[in-house]
Design a protein around this nucleic acid. Sequence first.
DNA 1: CTTGCGCGAGAACCATCGTTCTCCTAATGT
DNA 2: ACATTAGGAGAACGATGGTTCTCGCGCAAG
Lengths: 184, 184
Amino acid sequence: MISPETAELRILDAAETLFYGRGIQAVGMDEIRSASGVSLKRLYQLFPSKGELIQAYLRRRDVRWRQKLAAYADSQATPEESVLAVFDWLHEWFGEPDFRGCAFSNSFGELGATSSAVAETARAHKEAFFRYLAELTAAAGKPASLGDHLALLAEGAITTAAITGSAEPAHQAKAAARVLLAAA
Amino acid sequence: MISPETAELRILDAAETLFYGRGIQAVGMDEIRSASGVSLKRLYQLFPSKGELIQAYLRRRDVRWRQKLAAYADSQATPEESVLAVFDWLHEWFGEPDFRGCAFSNSFGELGATSSAVAETARAHKEAFFRYLAELTAAAGKPASLGDHLALLAEGAITTAAITGSAEPAHQAKAAARVLLAAA
DNA sequence: CTTGCGCGAGAACCATCGTTCTCCTAATGT
DNA sequence: ACATTAGGAGAACGATGGTTCTCGCGCAAG
């Protein structure tokens, strides 16, 4: 028997791969059991319902996604480079083979109307992303509005890359960001 | 008994309201029957499966959405105003009480991974939108890249407005568009 | 040793959903 | 008037999915 902590990790890994890759409603609890190797009983002990597993999936992904972005952007030499590095990071992300857009936009479109918990988690994620870009632009001595504008560009690049299957929107967004940054 | 044409319209109206408002998988064929007042038998005569109804819903919405946008933007006095009017139109759309984001982004997030037909329809919609913005910027004598940049802004504004429930992203996107337009 | 508890495997249960079928009614053509 | 046919209402069917239950086993405490 595996430890509860390991079981929880395996479940969350399986849930993330499946929910993100195929859509939440397209994945049954039984499939998460097979993919994780954790029995249904344990699964329901750790996550009493599918809804709670969805929330755990989204919360963990929110933290990890923003941490990876910040680790990349914060390691740049200057504040301006940090701002532009956001779009380089997006380009790397878009190129990953299992990239399928923003997990929060996707889950909002799928469940936002029927689950206020999902809607709220998606809202919190976007708000945190906007806040982070506001910090970056503030560090570069630019007005707060620039952060919003760049966030909109990034958001548009994410959904466009997902639907068209191309990483190019990251470069286009970066070019636009350069113009806005220089003008601000 | 109602005519087949009327039945088809009623079904498509009911499907659009329900699919868009609550998500496609959250709506059963029985609910479309109740909302449209058309019997299940007729429904399946006109749309042999739910998948075909989904496609009909998306195709009709694509045409109408782009027509409404073009009608608004094309009635402006100058090419520059047409370009910026796109964002005014978005602001009006975001303010509608049943606004819930882009039907194509939502359906892509929900079904894009399992239905290549949905994925392709979403892709075609985005491509047509990008092409339209390219026409507008070309008419204003601006480079093609500006069209892409503005489309990314609009795209980001749509998903941000949907998730945050605010129409404000349209104004932010317009402000950014003004800068890009002036610099291009 | 044995008694009982926790676990895994998977069946079972119940609701939902896409789709089809049954049965009844009404209108149409001769 | 009568046979035929189309249509509506809703039951029925088969599959799927979320959740719980049963059963058998191994292990730990007394």
